[in-house]
Design a protein around this nucleic acid. Structure first.
Lengths: 238, 238
DNA sequence: TAGATTGTTAATCGATTAACAATC
DNA sequence: TAGATTGTTAATCGATTAACAATC
């Protein structure tokens, strides 16, 4: 019932709201949140409708209430246990990222099939053999997995994850994987993202002439860095 | 005129087509490509329309022709020069990733503001001070940047990149950035992607009962791993 | 009060899917 | 020919935006 796009935006709102909370902000207006995400106030209000919270027609929304309401929707009540498969550069980066960013996510184990990596500890997690994957996932009832393997291993690994009971996969491998309809896969494709940037920056080259109407050089001081809300000087979370 | 979504899919098609090409496949049907990306044949044909190539009503599309046509749209004719800012775990992972995956992308330089990192070489690239950023970008006419800094630095760095003439930014920092309308930003948010997976896997829990109509356990062998096209045994590129 | 903001419905926009004539 | 596929247009679907009464 709640759309994927809305879930995505709620996640972003929460992080920005936590920054506001930490800087002592009590209330925010929909147009302020909109500015932070370069969106519209109408969309923010529509998204917040899903939360069931009610704003104040003059003061806006209570920041702490929004954070709590978003958490109620996004977070697993008892914390999310995740496994990571593929301890290459990207896998290690994600492990470090998880460590720094979350009390909400608990890394149960990291797996690889390279004998040189198995047994080594990175970011506090000991790398285990993929042969142990199914056992760990089933024993600990892990429902979420992160796949950071090379392309050729992604489908095989995903099949095993699904067989072991995984319900959601974050696929960071450079290839799509196929899963049964009751498993949710979120694909993040860095190669595609990069190609998209170069392609669309190039295709939108004509736009600048229309937008800036004659002036060939856009001064960086025009970039909208002066917000009414503080966005700098603090990490997005913890 | 060509939509963002289509560009994204073309990028994915190309990588899958290169796998096919390497395995000796000469022609593909729209429904085969559709199966590889878990999409529909109609959408594939609609996307391919943009290329101006014409398929054969009985044999399908010539793989090599598709790859060439997609490259014509996506790639910068003389290769894409990129800079990367923020040489943390993620930055290093992306550097390694770029090294392995692309002849099309050339990393001009990597930057950080940590004195301990400056001067060190990673994945063949020497880390330079961010103070040199503008000079390098302008001197080499770099148009594309990858931002892998912490949240608190992302806006500041982006402002400098834009001022130096960058036209496209891949933002991997855990916060949105604001740029003038003539600069294209592609945001990849790992934290949001992960939260989306856990949330949507949980919200879609009811679906499985409908889909599998009574059978409580979905066997992994049902997962659609048996394709008519080979998808395993080869890296996606190079 | 006057002005600004919320909550929600209606209008718009864009993207996906269905359909089908043309082709081989 | 009969059957399958392409290329493209029309229909559908979903998401975003605009609008505005209710509220403070």
């Amino acid at each position: 019932m709640i759309s994927e796009k809305t879930v995505e935006r709620l996640s972003v709102y929460r992080r920005l709201l936590e920054v506001q909370e930490n800087s002592g902000r009590e209330y925010v207006y929909s147009h302020e949140l909109a500015e932070l995400v370069s969106g519209t106030a109408a969309q923010v209000r529509r998204d917040l409708m899903e939360l069931g919270v009610t704003g104040h027609s003059k003061r806006g929304y209570l920041v702490s209430e929004l954070v709590r309401a978003i958490s109620r929707i996004i977070d697993t009540p008892d914390g999310t246990r995740v496994v990571l498969v593929g301890v290459g550069d990207l896998g290690r980066a994600v492990l470090g990222f998880l460590k720094g960013f979350y009390g909400r996510m608990q890394v149960v184990a990291a797996f690889d099939n390279d004998p040189l990596k198995i047994g080594r500890v990175m970011h506090g997690y000991r790398c285990q053999s993929v042969t142990e994957l199914a056992g760990v996932v089933m024993a600990q009832h892990v429902q979420t997995a992160i796949v950071t393997t090379p392309a050729h291993a992604a489908q095989h690994v995903s099949d095993h994850l699904v067989a072991a009971g995984i319900r959601g996969i974050l696929n960071l491998a450079p290839t799509p994987v196929h899963v049964p309809p009751d498993v949710y896969v979120e694909r993040v494709d860095l190669a595609t993202a990069l190609e998209k940037v170069t392609c669309l920056a190039r295709l939108s080259e004509g736009v600048q002439e229309r937008e800036t109407a004659g002036s060939l050089h856009v001064d960086a001081t025009q970039s909208m860095s002066g917000h009414s809300l503080a966005v700098c000087g603090a990490e997005a979370s913890t």
